[in-house]
Nucleic acid binder design. Structure first.
Lengths: 350, 350
DNA sequence: TCGGGGTGAGAAAGCGCTTCCTCGCACGCC
DNA sequence: GGCGTGCGAGGAAGCGCTTTCTCACCCCGA
């Protein structure tokens, strides 16, 4: 009745039941043949089942499996903005590793809104994902602070594992990135090639990643005699336009003897570059600029951008491995970063 | 026994059963209270259930719902490369619209490999997604051609809906993009501002999108007297490095009187720009360059890139709306594109 | 010859939900 | 006052799977 006899006309996908009937075996045997059960099943039967499955174009219903097994093969990924190269690179890493582990990844965007993030975590929990990865640091002054932590802990209590990327405000597994050290090294190198007067454009209030980078940069300057006045730290949106705006206000109030602007990430740096050009100044000559992340495009802008390389895909991969309990991943320490000097900071000979 | 009496110690998430018991109502009533059933339920009961759910931190098991309802709230998205801005922008659109419809999106990357794509479609089918969106055109000369079509049709027969983005080789719902017209318009404008001698760098053999753009561009030239020799159409990988390599071989064999290079997408164009610079030539002056897509970065490169804008996020959104049977989306016709002239094609006065 | 043990197929219970169906109840009409 | 009707709560079946548990069967040793 259900399958009207003619296969090609069936309206609903073949079930395991169909396969079992087609193969002339029991449901149990069919199930055991198609997944890697520990139980042995007669070779002859197994073959019959496999053939029947192929004939019926059977594809196991993952939801049903999840219900029966009490566990899924899903990993949930939460990022601030999918179109941002920083996040899309991380996502690519997560997806690659997930694929390797035959896991499925579901993705959502918080749009940098803590409330939204909390709500998404709630919804995503309904999927009972094995792993939940949260990328993108959030304001330390966060209205939902406690709630998110509570939610995540509840999720872990029920058997899930959460991994945070570069945000250690909660006591959870975390992929740490050498943001601070990278920025400090950058500052040292920049002073080393002659720069003295700096300004910083950074993201909104209290973003962990941004704050670490700024701290590191200051520390590097402090150690080497670079100069950074307090009012030379500008806050703007953590986006290309934020960088543009930040740089513009810097220009509008007069560059003075300012020599180099450090933007807390590359997309901002790229925006800043355009702001400089739009003011008919020459980036690298009139004012140098440096970023952070080494997203793919920065080697193609002019001048090519000095930055701190962070292996974004690697972060994504590491996050998943960490979640899956990979020993190595757990012991490798923070993700290493590396200063990359390019033409946007040609250096100053004094 | 299962819940040991103390809520905070429970190891497994609360079930609907727990909620019902806690609220002192039947399973059926609990279910009806928590989802938008058509049936009425006593206000007093509903309130009790909602409270119980909150108290137990209940979150419905989506897999179980899917099994019971026979339908999921999932949309599957297949792209070639997540880190590529073209795809990540489209993905962002899909995710935004999905979120709006309270759907969950799962994402996978084909890495431009038809075999992989086929396999992914097979796996993803197990999820019984409501919608499957495939982005990224594929070789027309494709070993798995028939198989993929077969698989997708089978999926549709079982109630799913698939939407292709800019690849009309299969008889399936498609988001069409004015690739051809856009490229033609671009060619006309470029001839209009004085260019005569052109070359094209395009993606690998038979990519639909690439082919359409090339065709359109040729048509535009043909109509206006622009000149394009057959051996001035170069094939390379559809990536930044492909663009770089393509441009380099163009340079190595001698630019001659070549005036403008059209790259079939922006990432290639950006690569080409760098190749030009690396050869100590000045893009825009020594040779002009134009791309296609208007990805975010191209306004920040120097010279800013002339391109054809295609609203990438809109494509993603449209794809999902189309899948969901949105009348409007179905009748709107191809996605409009728009020529954007920038400094990389300053024009030639003759 | 008979019993014990090992093997593996199949019946059936169960996973967390939805939804059909039954049935008690209150109400209104003649 | 009796009965039909509508309403809505709850029992129970069922979704597509997995995994116990039962049990038939075969081989072997005493």
């Amino acid at each position: 009745m259900t399958d009207g006899g003619i296969e090609t006309a069936r309206r609903t996908p073949a079930t395991l039941h169909d396969v079992a009937r087609e193969a002339g075996v029991s449901l149990a045997t069919a199930s055991r043949s198609l997944n890697g059960s520990t139980r042995k099943v007669n070779e002859e039967y197994r073959k019959r089942v496999l053939e029947a499955a192929a004939r019926l174009d059977y594809s196991p219903n993952l939801s049903a499996q999840a219900v029966a097994r009490g566990t899924t093969t899903t990993v949930a990924l939460l990022v601030a903005d999918i179109a941002d190269p920083y996040f899309s690179s991380i996502a690519a890493g997560v997806v690659a590793e997930a694929d390797h582990e035959r896991l499925i990844v579901t993705m959502a965007a918080t749009e940098r809104d803590p409330e939204r993030e909390l709500e998404l975590v709630r919804t995503l929990r309904g999927q009972r994902p094995r792993v939940m990865i949260l990328a993108g640091s959030r304001p330390t002054s966060d209205p939902t602070e406690g709630a998110l932590g509570e939610e995540l802990r509840a999720y872990e209590r029920s058997g899930g594992v959460v991994v945070l990327i570069s945000r250690n405000e909660l006591e959870l597994r975390t992929v740490l990135v050498e943001n601070r050290d990278g920025a400090e090294a950058l500052a040292r190198e920049l002073v080393g090639i002659g720069y003295r007067r700096f300004a910083i454009i950074t993201g909104g209030e209290g973003l962990r990643t941004a704050a670490d980078r700024v701290d590191g940069f200051r520390a590097g300057l402090a150690a080497t005699g670079g100069e950074l006045r307090d009012d030379d730290i500008l806050r703007a949106a953590f986006t290309r336009d934020g960088g543009y705006d930040g740089m513009r206000s810097l220009i509008e109030r007069g560059l003075g003897d300012l020599e180099l602007v450090f933007a807390a990430n590359d997309v901002m740096a790229v925006g800043a570059l355009s702001a400089i050009r739009d003011a008919n100044l020459v980036p690298g000559r009139d004012v140098a600029i440096a970023g952070f992340d080494d997203i793919p495009t920065v080697r193609d802008v002019t001048p090519a951008l000095t930055t701190v390389r962070v292996p974004l895909e690697e972060i994504g991969r590491r996050a998943l491995r960490l979640a899956l309990g990979d020993e190595e991943a757990a012991n490798e320490g923070a993700i290493r970063t590396e200063v990359v000097l390019r033409e946007s900071t040609p250096g100053i000979t004094r």
